[in-house]
Design a protein around this nucleic acid. Structure first.
Lengths: 183, 183
DNA sequence: TGGTACATGTAACATGTTACATGATTAG
DNA sequence: CTAATCATGTAACATGTTACATGTACCA
């Protein structure tokens, strides 16, 4: 209908719906699990986008199930819109990293405070790296148990990004000068 | 006045205003140069935040200069608000990386298309890494010419982050399997 | 039978984006 | 003189966040 370009959030929902009908709730949970590390979205947005996409004919509501579950099914127009989105040049990533602001304005910040914030963030990143490593180990174990040869390369690639990113961030923390990390 | 927590964008403007009065225009240009790589903001936002902060007493308007330049001066309340912001736990970074969405939904995307998008993004990141390396070289050259010993550690640290990030991203591109990078 | 997870949605607001309107000053 | 850059701002809209309201089904 409208040649209205999809936003990445809506496109992701359509991406998931390629694998079969899902409810808003399913989509929230799935998105959090599968793309949450590099594309955040909230429950509110999911319902809003679904309503908008239903109005635009990109998805259609299926029959209500138990607990008033409302499944949505991707339509032909929805597949076309997704294909069109993937054809458009994907935009640059945007990183919004409040810690780097704190570091940049470090001269304005009491040095103990700066060091504490940095240490706290380093801890969180170490934790995140560990959880990615666990995730990879689990995926490998599952694939072996299933007798499947290799991991699905697509999620594997995004996980690999996360691993490399977190390792780079930790290396950065460890190379910070003492003005920033503390004595 | 209001114990209204500053957002990171407003806080950044106050951060810059610590070094002296600046106009909206100055702030747009300065922010783009100094924090643009990890915190984007637009000209519209800058004027909006300045107006809001002026109303809240965090900055005050100075006398208009040539070309109707309107400088803003940080107030005592503004410094307090900035300090308060830096005291609050800084939030997690958010990365929103459309390319990773494309990769995640790779199975839904024609493989030539996927490979082309990936190649284009790799090119951009290589370019960005080169520009960071140039920036570092320039900063070192300038510091030497000025007879200054070391670089300012704060912007140096943020630049270092950029360098490490871009190197990690390039390594990731180069490690992608052929399903994604193309044959 | 009571708490937890499931499930849908709305409302209000904050933030970010894009496009436009207007004009002054400067450099070539 | 004229094009580019400087400079301020508004309007409209898109997207993202937070809080709330309502109720269902499962399981211990």
């Amino acid at each position: 209908m409208d040649p209205h370009r999809l936003n990445a959030t809506a496109a992701s929902l359509l991406g998931f719906l390629h694998d079969g009908p899902m409810t808003g709730w399913d989509l929230v949970v799935t998105a959090e699990r599968r793309i949450g590390d590099f594309w955040s979205l909230t429950q509110s947005q999911v319902y809003r986008e679904l309503a908008a996409m239903a109005a635009a004919g990109l998805v259609k509501a299926g029959e209500r199930g138990p607990r008033d579950r409302q499944p949505y099914i991707i339509t032909k127009a929805g597949r076309a819109a997704f294909a069109e989105w993937s054809r458009q040049e994907a935009g640059e990533e945007s990183i919004r990293f409040p810690l780097l602001l704190i570091v940049m304005f470090g001269r304005q910040i009491p040095s103990g405070r700066l060091a504490a914030v940095v240490a706290e963030h380093r801890r969180r990143h170490a934790e995140r790296l560990a959880s990615y490593e666990q995730e990879l180990a689990d995926a490998i174990a599952t694939a072996e148990a299933d007798g499947a040869g290799d991991l699905d390369p697509y999620p594997r690639a995004t996980l690999d990004f996360g691993l490399r990113y977190e390792r780079a961030v930790l290396d950065w923390f460890d190379a910070l000068p003492k003005e920033i990390r503390g004595a």
